[in-house]
């Protein structure tokens, strides 16, 4: 076992996969010489050379397009869009090209590409760098969407994403870059589409993603002292969503709360709530609750984020309300 932070766990994953498969390459803004805008690709240029680790112009549409064309012609590209907020610049390549190629041409082309991107929610960098936009891509058939919350999950999921024959949007969380975890030295994969029960409990199912997983776990400690045991489920992959694990938990607890950094309307919290209605309505003792920031852009100034985003106090309060 070796203690790794989230950022290095991802570097390790990419490094291992590049060593394993010569078709894997990495391209994006500042990924090569600089080692990544946030250090997420340190050492890869030296290890794999300038053709396979390549800085691109600031041209998001062609960065993704590069990946699409390379994937269609036998490569396994990892293309990096520095922040998910920049997806507006490349959505055509993601939604109309990458996501549909396998379907449209009935499998004649595989699309083994990873679109590596990041949310910097609650990092205090304002309205164009802090958004949680996973719903944009979760809504598109043909895409897979991963958003890990721990170093081990990040590593195992990145390796699976690189080996997957579908376009995978891999959303890192900058706020989690420094968290550490013991990770086995032996190779391992974590399958896409499988949720993880981060804490078992009998009273309330709490589905949380990214940063909110950690807030939910902190809330669980407090609630446990009150005798309320919440079960914290991290879907890890939001598309395809592991509905079975969530539903099995709700069948046990009869109560559910979904906590996300993304907004309610048309978002993951709403999707999870709807899946619970579809599959476990007659196991619900109270309505499914959603805890998210209010429907506003993310302002910059100090204090705005703390005010807008769910925290352990609001999670505790929401759970207490479910238990009333």
């Amino acid at each position: 076992m070796t203690m790794k932070n989230y950022c290095w766990a991802l570097i390790d994953a990419i490094n291992e996969e590049m060593a394993r498969d010569p078709d894997v390459f990495l391209a994006g803004e500042d990924v090569a010489a600089a080692g990544g805008a946030f250090g997420g690709s340190r050492g890869l240029l030296a290890a794999h050379g300038p053709l396979r680790v390549r800085d691109t112009p600031i041209s998001e549409e062609v960065i993704v397009g590069l990946g699409v064309g390379a994937a269609m012609t036998g490569k396994r590209p990892i293309v990096e869009i520095m922040f998910m907020d920049f997806f507006g610049l490349c959505m055509d390549q993601i939604v109309n090209q990458a996501a549909k190629m396998h379907y449209l041409y009935q499998g004649a082309f595989k699309m083994p590409m990873v679109i590596r991107t990041m949310t910097a929610v609650e990092m205090g960098i304002g309205p164009h760098h802090s958004q949680s936009l996973e719903a944009w891509v979760g809504h598109v058939p043909g895409l897979k969407v991963v958003m890990p919350s721990t170093p081990r999950d990040a590593k195992g999921l990145m390796k699976s994403a690189i080996r997957d024959d579908n376009p995978v949007v891999f959303i890192e969380n900058l706020a989690l870059h420094k968290i550490k975890e013991d990770i086995e030295d032996e190779e391992f994969l974590i399958p896409l589409g499988k949720a993880d029960i981060k804490r078992a409990g009998r009273d309330v199912t709490v589905v949380a993603t990214g940063l909110m997983v950690h807030k939910a776990l902190a809330a669980a400690e407090i609630l446990s002292q009150e005798g309320i045991e919440i079960e914290v489920i991290d879907p890890r992959t939001i598309s395809p969503l592991d509905v079975d694990t969530i539903v099995a938990s709700v069948r046990k607890t009869n109560r559910a709360l979904v906590v996300t950094s993304a907004h309610k309307p048309f978002g993951l919290a709403s999707e999870v709530a709807a899946q619970i209605m579809d599959h476990a309505f007659y196991d619900l003792d109270v309505p499914v609750a959603r805890l998210t920031p209010p429907f506003t852009p993310q302002p910059f100034g100090k204090g705005f984020e703390a005010f807008l985003h769910p925290d352990k106090a609001s999670i505790v309060a929401a759970v207490r309300e479910l238990m009333a």
């Binding site: 078709d23 390459f25 053709l51 396979r52 549409e61 062609v62 993704v64 397009g65 590069l66 990946g67 699409v68 064309g69 390379a70 994937a71 269609m72 012609t73 036998g74 490569k75 590209p77 055509d92 390549q93 109309n96 090209q97």
Partner: peptide
């Protein structure tokens, strides 16, 4: 999509380079 194909032509060309 008008202009939708041009970006991914770069990827096909880059495959040849690689």
């Amino acid at each position: 999509i008008v202009g939708g194909g041009i970006p991914y032509a770069t990827g096909a060309a880059y495959s040849a380079v690689l």
